[in-house]
């Protein structure tokens, strides 16, 4: 499976690469769903996979589409690996792990944009430059969207437009993305012509 191809877009829309092993004293890896494939490919590329695994901590959770490849992650034999019950649960563990992270640690994120974005947000909050965090998209393209009106975040948005899960407004989904909020922007689609909401189209799966 190759990394996801996104159509060309505006400059605030994140782009992703492919995970590459880098020399480090420790490797912190965060993945969900099909991101497991990228993790396995990462170790396959390592010159000395056994020694890299001995210095790795993998946090994994199932993807929003239900894909769960935990068994393959567990079979890698990393020094530490955990399957979290959900993305929020994974982020709690990540926050604890980050307290002890030392200079020279390499960070790898892979899977859906919602997971990578939120992990990146928490890592950046510690002063880690986002450009030093490797990211590879795999799996579902559902979006995490912030309603610019009520500020509520709706997870796993599949259609455009969609209805805000908090204030109920019908929102169109922009490609404008905030790393600080780890969210795309949703804007009311019928603010001018009230009640004229086009039928939702499944743009993200």
């Amino acid at each position: 499976m190759t990394k996801t191809e996104f159509p060309p877009s505006i400059r605030s829309r994140p782009v992703y690469g492919e995970l590459e092993p880098r020399a480090g004293i420790f490797h912190l890896i965060v993945a969900d769903g099909e991101g497991a494939d990228a993790v396995i490919a990462l170790f396959a590329k390592a010159a000395d996979a056994a020694s890299m695994l001995a210095k790795s901590h993998i946090l994994y959770t199932a993807g929003p589409n239900g894909t769960d490849e935990w068994d393959r992650i567990a079979a890698l034999g990393a020094a530490q690996a955990q399957k979290a019950a959900s993305v929020p649960t994974l982020l709690f563990r990540l926050a604890r792990v980050l307290q002890d992270v030392q200079m020279g640690t390499q960070i790898y994120l892979t899977g859906t944009e919602g997971l990578m974005g939120q992990a990146e947000r928490d890592i950046m909050a510690l002063g880690f430059p986002h450009s030093d965090i490797q990211k590879e998209h795999r799996g579902s393209t559902v979006r995490r969207v912030q309603c610019v009106h009520c500020k509520g975040v709706t997870e796993n948005v599949r259609t455009d437009p969609f209805q805000c899960s908090h204030c109920g407004l019908h929102l169109f989904v922009r490609d404008h993305y905030s790393r600080r909020l780890a969210a795309f922007q949703g804007v009311n689609i019928d603010a001018e012509d009230r009640g004229q909401v086009p039928p939702p189209v499944e743009r993200f799966r």
Binding site: V148, H149, L169, Q185, V187, N188, A191, E192
Partner: peptide, 8 residues
């Protein structure tokens, strides 16, 4: 944008 539903 926050208040767009009020003025749009």
């Amino acid at each position: 944008p926050e208040t767009y539903p009020e003025w749009g």
